[in-house]
Design a protein around this nucleic acid. Structure first.
Length: 733
DNA sequence: GAGCACTGC
């Protein structure tokens, strides 16, 4: 670092300190303040509702609770439109805005962004940061069609849609005009859109055609603390665009409007973000209080060996001892949820007659929409609702009426083992931030109680944050995207948290054998085409191969079907009926062709919901399949791949085509009657959900290898071993 | 004999 640069840097640091003071952001406590202090009882420094000078009217309160985006049960955009009918007057909206904690920071925020390239806003839930910040900037004249509009990225599409809708109401314009959104399959923006809410995946895609994001003068990356693979890449790309635009701006020849970045988060390691974005520019941190009631924490007095048993005991204890209010129980997965449901209902029948009855609600992603929405029904008089949920209730769905949270402190984490190319799903302890987020769910409407089924000591030993996805997932598609964005040195790329070399090398190797990269690691023409598809590289490879094999129709359909994680749904109490229903679609070729049969029948039935119900088919997921197919047909057409070529019933052809993307995923039956993978010689099993479970076939191809109780192949097809030599001739072993 | 949560021009 040369002297002048160093001085500049010091100046920046001073400025950072100064602006913190000016903006009273550090709250006299400093941003390093550990939240762990809130050991016992009252959680954090949550401003208590009682102390609020003016108590927000009940009407506004219930309004806000009804409207918040996370309350939506699923991706059903139609139901949103129905609920978003205006039912309050415009003056109410202004009053509502003024009541939000962020309103006080309005001018500070605008000023901070005028003076700085990057700012960081920490705001708890209910602070209004996601809805107000863009409006403040537009109202201050910082965002115009001429200067460049503002993008607000969200990790979830429901959030993008409902935030846009809410803000367009507040702004007094029709959705899609000044305020719009852009998510997969749905774009409500126009040439006059100033505030554009989009999913982070969508913003990443936009980078492919506009790497400097010249459309925008401001970019907000919301929910940054979630650290998804996509936001992590966005951090780097947005930062890079900012630098490039700033440098070009200084050079006189090109005059790009500078790009201002706002990082937003609920709980976030602000200093880490500041450091990352502070290399050349100053960053400042604003802290906005949220609206949250105090939550009392009860820790387990000793470590629990059986979290399910502990959950049952605690839940029933709350039910017996505590006044009215629903109970939300966090569990790691569907299986535990279904077991606990049964236990609670058994217990419920033996309750004394003077007690409230219990009703259980299940909540996990694979649950069909109709059953998910049941959790939003209020408990009928004389009953108490007990919600058994996965992580989905931590971020995506907010349920009203919850006063008690039972936290097992466990969740399932997906990890990718690069060495053996296998994904695993294991039950692990949650992070402190995750546990705190769960706790907050008890204090949305009134003071609440959280029962942690782990000791305080165990809490203190938890990680602060969940490990960022980029450090533990398969990176193939991210690396292909970076290569397509002309970033050749993916090992030395400016990651906020660099993934391990093993993960990176595995991804590079995978892309090389798919011929997306050449032996110098440069992206090939094929690779560029593959990057255009919103698919994992293997699937993109299959679609491109389908042109030569004349089975594009089937390839697109299979790839679309594989884009959802379950075609079928089998409720715990109807397992046998569900598996009988499945048999109707079964193909000797295996799961992929079985799925294809389902799609054919689904279309013959025109997606009839009664038919879906009777055949245990997940209708929501089938609708998604149809959307994906439509998009893939458009993309293929644009790339000159004819989409009507079909192999008819000659399914061998489309399976050979699949093998072009998945030849690594093949296994051969051994004389000992178990399967071994061809490329890594590991012993593997067919997953019990497969139609080929317990079948002995010469060779099989799978799309996924997961390690749960054993190493399982999922989405399995019957193939012939000699196909492997035909399909993958250039593989050096 | 088993399926954390999200997402994509």
């Amino acid at each position: 670092m040369n002297t002048s640069r160093k001085r500049e840097h010091e100046k920046d640091v001073d400025e950072l300190e100064q602006s913190k003071k000016n903006l009273k952001i550090a709250n006299n406590k400093g941003i390093h303040k550990k939240k762990d202090k809130s050991k016992t009882n009252n959680y954090k420094q949550i401003p208590q509702k009682k102390n609020d000078n003016k108590q927000p009217s009940k009407k506004l309160d219930s309004f806000s609770n009804r409207k918040i985006p996370q309350e939506k049960p699923d991706n059903n955009d139609d139901s949103f439109k129905k609920n978003s009918k205006r039912n309050i007057t415009d003056s109410n909206l202004i009053e509502f805005r003024k009541e939000l904690p962020i309103w006080q920071e309005r001018s500070n925020l605008v000023q901070a962004l005028i003076e700085n390239d990057t700012i960081i806003i920490m705001g708890e839930m209910g602070s209004g940061k996601s809805t107000q910040t863009p409006q403040f900037l537009v109202e201050a004249g910082l965002v115009t069609l001429k200067k460049g509009i503002i993008a607000i990225s969200q990790p979830r599409r429901v959030a993008a849609i409902s935030l846009a809708s809410r803000v367009s109401q507040e702004f007094g314009t029709k959705l899609g005009q000044k305020v719009g959104y852009s998510v997969r399959f749905d774009d409500k923006t126009s040439h006059s859109t100033l505030m554009k809410y989009l999913t982070d995946g969508m913003l990443l895609r936009e980078l492919l055609s506009d790497p400097l994001l010249l459309k925008y003068s401001k970019v907000i990356l919301d929910e940054a603390h979630e650290r998804t693979m996509r936001t992590d890449i966005l951090f780097a790309m947005v930062k890079k665009a900012q630098e490039t635009r700033k440098n070009s701006f200084n050079q006189k020849d090109k005059k790009y409007e500078p790009l201002k970045i706002i990082i937003m988060s609920a709980t976030l390691d602000a200093t880490r973000f500041a450091k990352y974005f502070n290399t050349w520019y100053s960053s400042i941190i604003l802290k906005i209080p949220g609206r949250q009631f105090p939550v009392t924490i009860n820790y387990a007095s000793e470590p629990q060996s059986d979290y399910l048993d502990a959950a049952l005991t605690t839940t029933m204890q709350i039910h017996m001892d505590q006044p009215k209010g629903d109970i939300l129980v966090f569990l790691p997965g569907q299986e535990d949820i279904e077991i606990l449901e049964k236990l609670i209902n058994d217990y419920g029948t033996s309750l004394p007659p003077d007690k409230l009855k219990v009703i259980t609600c299940l909540l996990f992603a694979a649950l069909p929409t109709e059953q998910q929405t049941k959790v939003f029904n209020f408990a009928p008089p004389g009953t108490r609702k007990i919600i058994l949920a996965t992580n989905i209730a931590e971020t995506s769905i907010t349920i009203r009426g919850v006063r008690y949270v039972v936290d097992t402190g466990k969740c399932k984490i997906r990890k990718f083992n690069a060495k053996i190319g296998m994904e695993s799903l294991s039950i692990e302890n949650v992070s402190k931030n995750s546990a705190d987020q769960r706790l907050g769910r008890a204090g949305r409407e009134a003071p609440g109680i959280c029962y942690r089924l782990f000791t305080e000591d165990e809490y203190n030993k938890m990680e602060r944050n969940t490990e960022p996805e980029i450090k533990r997932c398969n990176l193939s598609s991210v690396i292909l995207l970076l290569k397509a964005l002309d970033i050749d040195d993916v090992l030395g790329f400016d990651y906020m948290d660099p993934p391990s070399r093993t993960l990176l090398k595995k991804a590079l190797e995978h892309l090389y054998i798919l011929k997306a990269l050449n032996n110098q690691g440069k992206i090939t023409e094929l690779g560029k085409k593959m990057a255009e598809f919103p698919l994992e590289p293997s699937y993109a490879r299959v679609l491109i191969a389908s042109q030569e094999l004349s089975c594009t129709r089937e390839a697109i359909e299979i790839v679309s079907l594989l884009s959802v994680d379950s075609i079928f749904f089998s409720p715990q109490d109807q397992r046998e009926y569900a598996s009988d229903a499945k048999k109707k679609f079964m193909s000797p070729f295996g799961d992929l062709i079985t799925f294809l049969n389902v799609l054919r029948s689904y279309e013959a039935q025109k997606g009839n919901s009664e038919w879906c119900y009777q055949n245990f088919i997940n209708r929501r997921n089938m609708k998604h399949v149809i959307d994906v197919r439509k998009q893939l047909i458009q993309l293929c057409t644009r790339m000159g791949i004819p989409t009507n070529s079909s192999c008819g019933n000659e399914y061998e052809i489309v399976l050979k085509c699949m093998l072009c993307g998945f030849f690594r995923n093949s296994a051969i039956l051994q004389p000992t009657n178990n399967y071994r993978t061809v490329f890594s010689n590991q012993s593997v099993n067919i997953h019990p959900s497969s139609t080929l479970f317990n079948k002995k076939l010469e060779a099989v191809m799978y799309t996924e290898l997961v390690l749960t109780t054993r190493p399982y192949m999922k989405n399995v097809s019957a193939i012939q071993s000699n196909w492997l030599y035909d399909t993958a001739p250039n593989i050096q072993q």
